[in-house]
Amino acid sequence: MDARFLGIAELDETPAVAVVVDVMRAFTVAALAFGQGAEKIVLAGSPDEALALKARHPDWVALKDGPRAAGFDAVNSPGLLRSVDLGGRTVVQKTTAGTVGALAVKEASLVLCASFVVAGATARLLRTRACGSVTFVVTGDDGHAEEDLACAHYIARRAAGAATDAAGFLRRAGESRAAVELARGVRLGAHPDDVALCLELDRFPFAMVAAPEDSLMVLRPHAVPGRSQKTDTP
């Protein structure tokens, strides 16, 4: 598999297959939302779009980065999201990096959104689809976020069929600037458990596929049969 690792600003063309990585915290939050029963996630392009969608659909759950804000039901924190009832509901998500990255590659034939909690299933889906060329969109820190790079490198190795020890990749992510800032309470709208939840490898058995639906970019879980071990082999 030919893998490229690019920041959002480095995307010079629409890739055929894109894996958009945001470990801390957008796509950990998205996976947790599905784990709590959410039906789908609408990826919003701006806070105003998220609020407009919420206004048209009052039963939808709108969330964003940072502290709580008027009109939004939740914040982009896996720890804080655990207390929100999401059974059968639609979530509208707007974040600084993750949703921006997914919308940047919305024309790709396959768009996956990923983090460590769905890493194994994401890799298995790439193998199942026999994807020869994959662009990993590293969303954080202008493409240099160590936690996103570590996750992208890990998924790429597993997608290529290599037995891979996750420990080093998780260590890189746990020592990243984002992890340190979350642990120290520098970032608003956070929970003390956020870092640990973001580093929980292969918690969920599904990948997350984003595709256009009625002019919106919608993320849904996609079950991927296969091994659940931390080190997949061909």
Rank of each mutant, 00 (worst) to 15 (best):
Q93V: 10
G37L: 12
D2G: 14
G66L: 03
D202T: 09
A190H: 13
S115W: 05
A74F: 09
V75Q: 10
G174S: 04
L216W: 08
F206D: 05
A108F: 00
S176E: 13
A114G: 02
P205W: 04
L32N: 07
V111D: 00
V209M: 01
L170N: 05
C198A: 14
G45P: 06
R158T: 11
S109M: 06
L149Q: 09
R25S: 06
R157W: 02
C131E: 12
A166I: 06
T139Y: 07
V137K: 10
A97M: 07
V92I: 14
L11E: 00
S115M: 01
F204Q: 01
R56E: 14
D202P: 10
V42R: 01
D22T: 00
I155F: 13
S83E: 14
D142G: 14
I8E: 01
D65I: 05
A52D: 07
V118I: 08
P221I: 12
V20S: 02
Q93Y: 10
T99Y: 06
A50F: 04
T128K: 15
D193W: 08
G132V: 07
G132M: 04
V29G: 00
K230H: 13
A162D: 15
A196W: 12
A211G: 14
A179K: 10
P234L: 14
V42C: 08
V138K: 01
F34A: 06
Q229V: 15
G174K: 12
V91L: 09
T99E: 03
G66R: 05
L51Q: 13
D12Y: 09
G120D: 04
A44T: 08
D65E: 13
A119C: 02
K94L: 12
G79D: 05
L6G: 06
F206H: 11
T96F: 00
V105A: 11
A104N: 02
L199Q: 07
L43S: 07
A210G: 06
R25F: 03
V19P: 03
V218L: 12
R203M: 13
V84R: 08
G132K: 12
D165A: 10
K64I: 12
G168A: 10
A210T: 01
G161L: 04
P47S: 04
M217T: 13
P225Y: 06
A145T: 09
F34W: 05
A3N: 10
A44L: 00
L149P: 06
F5K: 02
L51F: 08
G140T: 01
P212S: 11
R129C: 06
Q93T: 07
T14R: 03
V186Q: 09
K40I: 05
